[in-house]
Simulated assay, not measured.
Amino acid sequence: MADYRIREYRDEDYEMVRELFATGMSEYVPALCVHVLKQPWVILVLACTFCILLTSSKSLLLPILAITLLLATGRQLLGYFWTMYIEHCLKEDLLDIRTTYMGSKGSCFWVAEADECVVGTVAARPSDDQEGELMLKRMSVRKDYRGLGVAKALCQAVICFAQQQGCRAVVLNTLMVQDEARLMYERVGFAKYRDDVLPTVYGRLANVTISKYRYSVPRRS
Rank of each mutant, 00 (worst) to 15 (best):
G106R: 08
Y101C: 02
L69Q: 10
L60I: 15
E180V: 04
V118N: 00
S211M: 08
G132R: 03
A181M: 03
I52R: 09
L78W: 06
V170M: 04
G166D: 06
L77K: 03
A153C: 07
I64G: 08
L134G: 01
R138I: 03
Y14R: 14
Y14T: 12
V36A: 13
K105W: 11
R146N: 07
A124L: 03
V170Q: 02
M135C: 10
L46I: 14
E8T: 12
K58A: 15
G147I: 04
F21D: 03
S59F: 09
Q130L: 11
K105F: 12
G24C: 08
S216L: 14
L154V: 08
P63A: 08
G149I: 11
E12W: 02
K152Y: 06
V34L: 10
Q76H: 09
P30Q: 06
G132I: 03
E116G: 04
V42W: 08
W110P: 07
L71R: 09
R18Q: 13
G132P: 11
L95C: 11
S140I: 06
V158T: 09
A114L: 03
I97S: 04
Y9Q: 07
V197F: 07
A124V: 06
L148W: 06
L198S: 12
A114C: 10
A181H: 00
V36D: 02
Y80L: 13
T174A: 07
C160W: 10
G106A: 07
W110D: 08
V119H: 04
I159D: 01
C89I: 13
L70I: 15
S140V: 11
T174C: 02
T209V: 15
V197Q: 09
G74T: 05
D129E: 14
L205T: 11
V201D: 14
M102N: 08
T73G: 10
S211V: 05
P30Y: 03
R187Y: 00
E133I: 01
K91V: 08
G120K: 02
V119M: 01
G74N: 08
D196G: 02
V119C: 01
C89T: 13
A153W: 03
V171R: 04
V141H: 01
L61N: 06
C167I: 00
T209S: 09
D195M: 05
P30N: 04
E87K: 11
E12R: 04
D179G: 02
